[in-house]
Amino acid sequence: MEAPAAQPAAPALTHPSRGRIRFSDKAFHVILGAVCCVYVGLILLLLLGDTLYMLQHTSDRPSGASWLLHNPIAQALAKPEIQNSIVLSMISCTVSAFLALWIAVPVGYLLARTRFRGKQLVDAVLDIPIVLPPLVVGLSLLILFQFAPFTTPLGAILPFSTPWDHVSLNALVVYQVPAVILAQFMVATAFATRTMKATFDQIDVRREQVALTLGCSRFQAFSRVVLPEAGSGMLTAWTLAWARSLGEFGPLLIFAGATRNKTEVLSTSVFLELSIGNIEAAVAVSLIMVLGALIVLIVARVWGRSDLIL
C-alpha cells in the first residue's frame, strides 16, 4: 500500500498590519473629505464671487451717499420692472407650487400604495419633465398649444357662456402670465411627485390598515391618518416645487416669452439685464434669487423632511 502523498504545507496566516489599516482608514476619510470640500467650496465660491462683485461696485458710490441706497441690489429693487418681476415671480411660484402639490399628493400616493398594469410606464413618464432639456419642455408646450382644442374659440368648447367666448386658449395662455405658471408647474410637479412618493413610501402602511379595521373608508384612512403624517413631506414638496419654479428659465423663454413688465420673472430679469450689458443689475437680481432660494431651503430643512429633499 502506497503512503499518501504529503500535502503541501499551508502558507502561514499573515495578519494585516495595524499601521497599514490605520493609514488606509485615515487616507480613506481624508479623500472623502477632500472631494466633499472641493464641491462645497466651489458652490460657496460662486456665491462669494457674486457678493464680492456687488461689493466692488458698491464702493463706486458717490462720496457721502448712503451704502444702503447705493448698492446694486438697492438700485435693482428701485426699478419698476424689477419690482414687477419680483411680484410676478412670487405669485407664479406660489400658484404653481400649490398646483404641483394638488397633483403630486394623489399621484405620489397612487404610486406608493397601489400596483397596476403599466405602473412602470407611468413612473417613467413622470420623470420626463425632469430629464428633458428645459428648452424642449417649453418648445413642446408651445407646439401643443398650436393644436385643437387649444386653438378653438372657448365658446365652441365650453357648454356655458364666458366673456372670452371668441378667444382661444392659445391666445389666453401663450406669451401671457398663465404660460409662466404652466411652464413652472410642468417641471415643479415632477419633483413634487417624486418627493410625495418617497413620503408615502416611508409611512407605515399598517397604520392605514388599522384605520380600515376601525371603520374607515379608504378616503377616511387617507385623509385622517396618512395626510397628517405626510404633513412635513408635503411642506418639503411645496418648497421644492416653489424653488424649482423660481429657477425655471428655458421653458419660460420659449413658451411665455421675455416681455418686460408682462411675463418677466426674476430669471428672465437676469437674462434681460445681461442682454443689455447691465451686469451689476443681473448679479443683484441673481443675489435676490439666491436669498429667496436660501429662505425656502431653510424652511424645508427646519420644518420639512430633509431626507426627502431631492
Binding site: R206, R207, Q209, E229
Partner: peptide, 18 residues
C-alpha cells in the same frame, strides 16, 4: 375590513403618531 367589526392590534401597535 371596515364592515367586519374586528379589533386588530398589529405587532408594533401602529399607533397614529400625529
Amino acid at each position: 375590513p371596515a364592515l367586519r367589526c374586528v379589533g386588530y392590534v398589529p405587532q408594533d401597535g401602529a399607533l397614529f403618531s400625529t
